[in-house]
């Protein structure tokens, strides 16, 4: 189980990286943390002819705050996000999610941008970015553009990134005073991809929620924004009855399919339970009785 032959390029800056990808196009793959790509290569599930290793591009790494936005460079390692005071302060949802991402050795090497660009439907970070209403900064030959996270994930392992482009950062609006986050997932084992999970960001006052963003993962070919459920929850206090109503609304938002591991009905059940529990986390409600 050895990787097939490929050749290797190590650009010195973003501009050179863009030059390289221009030359090789679809035959090339970006090599960031490599925690998914190198596994796929070892299993010969992918066979790019060129790997462009961007690990040397220090301008892509790091976490900063600018103009009310938390900016996370694409090459920032998961570990850094997990332990970042800036992330804890301005996007606590990511801090909640990070311990669920694989295992320590993988988080030490895996990158934020790699996880976003790989777009595994069961991955935690894409859903978090949707719930946080992040924007992704993308650079290509034609310059820079921004895509909202909710429009970025277009299908199974598919994103809005075009050939010749590179994801350079995510810009996340800093959480305001009332901003609170909840994160839950159900995985059979610690560090596994979840059977179902959700990331929630909302403004919370007492038991009243506003600006509710709920993003599910593991329940479809891409992360899903549960807008119907969210709008129910924005209509008043998060009472057990309202949460139950939001659970019902998930039928409008989600349509999980059967796969080799679990039935769609199973994932739907878990999604409903997770929703109730996550809203319970937000408003500290005992919601067990409301769940179905």
């Amino acid at each position: 189980m050895k990787a097939p032959a490929f050749s290797y390029l190590r650009p010195e800056n973003i501009s050179q990286a863009i030059d390289f990808i221009d030359i090789y196009g679809d035959e090339a793959r970006w090599l960031a943390g490599g925690q998914s790509l190198l596994a796929a290569l070892n299993m010969r599930l992918a066979a790019p002819s060129v790997l462009i290793d961007i690990n040397g591009l220090s301008e892509l790494a790091g976490i900063s705050v600018n103009a009310g936005k938390l900016i996370i460079g694409a090459l920032t390692r998961h570990r850094e996000i997990e332990h970042s005071p800036l992330v804890a302060q301005h996007a606590s949802l990511l801090a909640l999610a990070m311990p669920h991402v694989a295992h320590a050795a993988v988080r030490n090497r895996g990158t934020f941008g790699g996880s976003i660009a790989f777009a595994d439907p069961a991955a935690e970070l894409p859903a978090c970015c949707i719930a946080l209403d992040a924007e992704f900064v993308i650079v290509g030959r034609g310059g820079e553009r921004r895509v909202r996270a909710r429009h970025f994930f277009t299908g199974l392992y598919e994103t809005a990134l075009q050939t010749g482009e590179i994801l350079v950062a995510a810009e996340i609006p800093c959480a305001r005073d009332k901003g609170r986050a909840a994160f839950r997932e159900l995985a059979r084992r610690h560090g596994d991809y979840a059977i179902a999970g959700l990331a929630v960001q909302a403004a919370v006052e007492g038991d009243v929620l506003r600006d509710v963003n709920i993003a599910f993962f593991g329940v479809d070919s891409k992360p899903v924004l549960a807008e119907h459920a969210a709008s129910v929850l924005e209509q008043g206090a998060a009472t057990p009855a309202r949460i139950e109503q939001a659970q019902h609304q998930l039928a409008q938002d989600l349509a999980p399919q059967d796969d080799v591991h679990y039935s769609g009905a199973m994932r739907m059940q878990l999604a409903r339970v997770l929703l109730a529990r996550a809203i319970g986390d937000l408003v500290n409600l005992e919601t067990k009785s409301a769940a179905r």
Binding site: L186, R188, I195, Y262, S263, A265, M266, Q269, L270, R292
Partner: peptide
């Protein structure tokens, strides 16, 4: 599995 338990509990159709 969780699915088998939920089926035994009648929680999945």
């Amino acid at each position: 599995t969780p699915e088998r338990i939920l089926r035994a509990l009648g929680r999945l159709s």
